[in-house]
Design a protein around this nucleic acid. Sequence first.
DNA 1: GCTCTGACGATTT
DNA 2: GAAATCGCCAGAG
Length: 104
Amino acid sequence: MSEFTERVYNCVSKVPHGKVVSYAQVAEMVGSPSAARAVGVALRKNTRTAYLDKDDFIPCHRVVRADGFVGEYNGGRQTKRELLCSEGVAINDNKVDLSYFWTE
DNA sequence: GCTCTGACGATTT
DNA sequence: GAAATCGCCAGAG
């Protein structure tokens, strides 16, 4: 896989339990602040999701949009909400509270 | 190598 | 303030 994608996975994997990050934040961490869309595409191709592999997975469900809106997900937005809710992240009509955003 | 598209974001109407 | 528009970078065709 390309280096960009590898970096994205690495950064997303560092997101702590019960926290979320925006696509823009991930893009900024990997060195391309404006590549939020590319980040989404990279995560979309990933199959190591939490609802498929319990042991080795990338918490892509902890990545939401910059305004807190829950974006798309391989298993559907419903699954994404379930996972976040299980981790203690409150969801308000497909939206997460801004206080759950993780900043390194 | 050119063009299109997209798990997005900020601006403008 | 909600909806439409443009811009953005990285991959795929």
